[in-house]
Design a protein around this nucleic acid. Structure first.
Lengths: 103, 103
DNA sequence: ACTATTTTTGACACTTATTGTCAATAGAAT
DNA sequence: ATTCTATTGACAATAAGTGTCAAAAATAGT
């Protein structure tokens, strides 16, 4: 399985596209330093930045967003013994919400 | 399925034990106002408070902790369409981490 | 209805996290 | 050596979370 972080993946994609941080950060309208830190996991990414990056790199946003969200989830349960149980409960609730969305 | 929040559950348990906020907050060493807000979801609960409450009410901490964690998870994925996928990815990662815990 | 008790509400100060800006440093490529 | 690229850390600005308190509202007891 992939154990790559979102930041690592984004760096990889950027390098494949042969774009320097300078150019990407200009397109994103954020400081180079911040983007550098984001790719190395020193700063958090926002959903907006992730979507913009998917656009810039012309890649599927879904994969990136799923990774983005799952990292936020992982952060919450860190090394909790009950993390897995909590995930299952959350899954049930999401399904429940989805089923009753329109009601 | 239970759609009860942690706060609601804690209030229910407190009322079953016929304890006023005043007494419980004294045992917790926090302000009455804060506890009131925690039960109504206006303030976040901390893991420590949850554990202390399980102790005070002499109830199983696991159930409360799982609810506590799952609410934090739910907060992260809110009404994201990809929430369910993200949960599944997180689950895989947790399992992966658990399997490689001792390595 | 009056009183005492419990609970809720909001204002406020205080602390902690997060975020953006910038300049200096380090590294890589030509 | 110079230029381009990337990293680092210090700093200020902002936002988010927390604790404290007192007044108001709701509830219960007499």
């Amino acid at each position: 399985m992939s154990t790559e972080t979102l930041g690592e993946k984004l760096r990889q994609i950027r390098e494949q596209n042969e774009l320097p941080l300078r150019k990407v950060s200009a397109l994103l309208d954020i400081d180079v330093a911040i983007l550098s830190k984001m790719e190395r996991g020193e700063r958090k990414l926002s959903k907006e930045v992730v979507l913009k990056l998917a656009d810039i790199y012309k890649c599927n946003p879904e994969e990136l967003l799923v990774l983005f969200l799952s990292e936020k989830i992982m952060y919450e349960i860190q090394d909790e013994d009950l993390g897995e149980k909590a995930l299952k409960v959350a899954e049930k609730r999401v399904k429940y919400l989805k089923a009753n969305k329109t009601k």
